[in-house]
C-alpha cells in the first residue's frame, strides 16, 4: 500500500532523513519509533504530500506523492502532531468544512459526519466550540478530521499525545479497530504504544532506519543470550560457584540482595532447556531451595535504547 524508496530530505547540509526505504502492506499497522528529531514527522509529512522530498520516491496506493499528489490526498487521512483544528468553529461546522474540502459526496456528508462523531464519542459535543475543548477532545476532533473521507491510509503523528491514560487506551483500541481494511502508520516515542498497537515497527534514529521488523521478532532478535532470573535459598557464594561449572552457563551475576538466606541471581545461558534442567538438578543435589526460575524478556524499551543510544557510558 505504501512504498518508500531511498527517501531523503535535506535542509541545507543537514539531512532530516537519509535514504529511508520501507514498505507497508495493506491492512498493517506500522509504528515509527524514534527519539524526538529522528525524522518521523518529516517522513510522515512527505507521505502526506505536505512536504516534497529532496530525492527518492514514495508512493501511496500506487500514486507518487510528487507527481500525483491530489490522488494521494484523496486516499490519505493525516493527523499531524498538532491537530489541525480551528478553535473558532464548532465541531459540527468544522467537520462540515472538512467534508467539503475533502470531497465527501454531498449525499453521504451528513451520514458520514454522524458516523465519525459516534466513532469518536463526540456526538454530544458536536455544537461545542473547539476552542473550549480539552486537549483530549481536540485530539479526537483531529482524528475525526483524518477519518472523515474514509481514507485507505491513515497517517497519525503521535495520536495519543496529550491524552490521559484512560483516553490513551481508548484511542489505541480505536486505532486497532480501524485496521483491517486500512493501512495505518503511526509515530510515537512511547514504547508500549508500539507493542500494544502495531504489527510492524521501524526504529529511526538521526534520519536513518536502525531496525525494521515485526514487534515480536525485534525483541527476540535483539535479546542476545538467554537470561534467567533465579531466587534460591542457599549460600550465595557456593551457589554461584556451582552454577558456573554447569555446561551452557556463561555467566552468573549475583544481584546482591540477600535476605533470610535467599539470594537473587542473574544467570546467562545458551538458551537451551538442558541448561535450565541442569540448574534445577544442581539446586536439588545441593539441597538448596528454588523459589524462582524465570526467563527475562528483553523489552522493546531495551531494544530501543540499545539501538538509539550511541553513548556507551549509558
Amino acid at each position: 500500500m505504501i512504498e518508500v524508496k531511498d527517501l531523503t530530505k535535506t535542509y541545507g547540509n543537514i539531512a532530516a532523513i537519509e535514504k529511508i526505504s520501507f514498505s507497508v502492506p495493506k491492512g498493517t499497522i506500522l509504528g515509527l519509533l524514534g527519539p524526538n528529531g529522528a525524522g518521523k514527522t518529516t517522513t510522515m509529512r512527505i507521505l502526506t504530500t505536505s512536504l516534497a522530498p529532496t530525492s527518492g520516491k514514495a508512493t501511496v496506493a500506487g500514486f507518487d506523492v510528487v507527481t500525483a499528489p491530489q490522488e494521494v490526498r484523496k486516499r490519505i487521512g493525516y493527523l499531524p502532531e498538532v491537530p489541525p483544528i480551528y478553535s473558532d468553529m464548532s465541531i459540527m461546522a468544522y467537520l462540515k468544512f472538512v467534508a467539503d474540502i475533502k470531497e465527501v459526496p454531498l449525499d453521504k456528508k451528513a451520514n458520514r459526519i454522524g458516523e465519525v462523531l459516534e466513532m469518536l464519542d463526540l456526538g454530544k459535543m458536536s455544537q461545542r466550540l473547539i476552542g473550549h475543548l480539552s486537549l483530549g477532545y481536540r485530539q479526537r476532533v483531529g482524528l475525526a478530521q483524518a477519518l472523515l473521507h474514509d481514507p485507505d491510509v491513515l497517517v497519525l503523528d503521535e495520536p495519543t499525545r496529550g491524552l490521559d491514560p484512560k483516553q490513551i487506551l481508548e484511542i489505541r483500541k480505536l486505532i486497532k479497530s480501524l485496521s483491517g481494511q486500512r493501512t495505518i502508520i503511526l509515530s510515537t516515542h512511547i514504547l508500549p504504544e508500539v507493542s500494544s498497537t502495531c504489527d510492524d515497527v521501524i526504529i529511526v534514529d538521526q534520519g536513518k532506519i536502525v531496525a525494521a521488523d515485526s514487534v515480536e521478532n525485534l525483541s527476540q532478535r535483539l535479546a542476545g543470550g538467554k537470561i534467567l532470573d533465579l531466587e534460591i535459598k542457599g549460600p550465595s557464594d557456593e551457589v554461584t560457584k556451582a552454577f558456573e561449572k554447569i555446561d551452557g552457563v556463561s555467566a552468573v551475576k549475583s544481584l546482591g540482595r540477600e535476605s533470610k538466606g535467599v539470594s537473587k541471581l542473574e544467570v546467562s545461558t545458551d538458551g537451551t532447556l538442558e541448561a535450565r534442567e541442569a540448574l534445577f538438578n544442581c539446586v536439588v543435589k545441593n539441597k538448596w531451595v528454588l523459589y524462582q526460575l524465570s526467563p527475562v524478556g528483553v523489552s522493546l524499551e531495551d531494544v530501543f535504547l540499545k539501538l538509539t543510544t550511541k553513548d556507551s557510558a549509558l
Binding site: S50, R73, K74, I76, I101
Partner: peptide, 14 residues
Amino acid sequence: KNGTAELLKTSPLT
C-alpha cells in the same frame, strides 16, 4: 501558526 495549514495542504485542494 495553528497548524491548520497542514490540513489545507494535505486535502485534495490546489
